[in-house]
């Protein structure tokens, strides 16, 4: 990974320059929010109103439209966070460090949502709020990894050093991701196997599947929006003495 030509690295450094990034997020935000609202409206209407009740679980299964996309996001955001942290560690790109730490609270939130909605689904269907099943336990460890990243970052004052520390923690924690994914296949416990991401054919009817995919995309959009909001705060805090921040403040005053 050290073989990438200097010109390419310089290009990314320029694209990832803080003022450029800050202005870009401001420009993109209305579009991102519009797409998010449309996806969410379609997903919720399809899932809560149009989709038929499940033949075994009745209407309780409708929790799937937030539970499963949240669980997917908990893994997806972790991979983005670890990749960004790794890039920051190797090339010392400030923006990669900022994306990494800005992702952590959102990933933790989705992990929390996946756990709690799973619990609210488990109570009427399994008869229990919680079991120490492989899927549930590994997902809980994921929550602790996120909280560890947030706590470690907060504990170190020098944010460049803090970013190095969380990169190492995040990268080591990647080992948990395949464990979560394959837990329902490796250990035969209470949590059901995959219904959508099976290689052959998803064992879920299309009227139930389509809203689920809409919600999955909606949550991806939400992640981009929420992550950019956090990134802007983080960027301003780190760059508070930079000339571009001073210029921006002067513009706002006049």
């Amino acid at each position: 990974m050290f073989l990438i030509p200097d010109a390419v690295v310089r290009f990314f450094h320029r694209m990832a320059s803080p003022p450029h990034f800050y202005a870009l997020t401001e420009k993109l935000m209305p579009w991102l929010v519009t797409i998010f609202v449309l996806l969410t409206a379609a997903g919720l209407y399809g899932g809560l109103v149009l989709a038929p009740p499940d033949y075994q679980q009745g209407d309780s299964y409708r929790i799937i439209y937030i539970h499963v996309p949240s669980a997917w996001m908990s893994l997806f955001i972790y991979m983005v966070m670890a990749a960004a942290a790794g890039i920051g560690l190797v090339w010392r790109i400030k923006l990669a460090e900022i994306v990494a730490i800005s992702s952590a609270p959102i990933g933790a939130s989705f992990t929390f949502i996946a756990l709690v909605t799973g619990s609210l689904w488990g109570k009427p269907m399994w008869g229990t709020w919680w079991v120490w099943d492989a899927r549930l336990t590994s997902e809980l460890i994921l929550l602790f990894l996120y909280l560890g990243v947030i706590g470690l970052y907060g504990a170190i004052d020098d944010k460049r050093v803090a970013s190095k520390a969380i990169a190492i923690l995040a990268l080591v924690g990647v080992v948990n991701i395949p464990i979560i994914h394959y837990s329902v296949e490796w250990w035969n416990t209470l949590h059901q196997g995959p219904t959508v991401t099976k290689m052959d054919k998803p064992s879920i009817h299309v009227t139930m599947l389509v809203p689920l995919l809409f919600m999955a995309l909606s949550f991806k959009m939400y992640y981009v929006i929420a992550m950019l909001q956090r990134a802007k705060v983080e960027l301003l805090q780190r760059e508070r003495n930079a000339q571009w921040v001073k210029n921006m403040l002067l513009e706002k005053q006049s």
Partner: peptide, 27 residues
């Protein structure tokens, strides 16, 4: 919700609160 109102709306309500907080706090 076919008798599952507490579980279904509880899930959606909690999700709404958490996702809103993640926007309101950074703004």
């Amino acid at each position: 919700m076919g008798g599952y109102a507490f579980y279904v709306w509880g899930s959606y309500g909690l999700t709404l609160i958490v996702l809103l907080a993640n926007i309101i706090i950074p703004v």
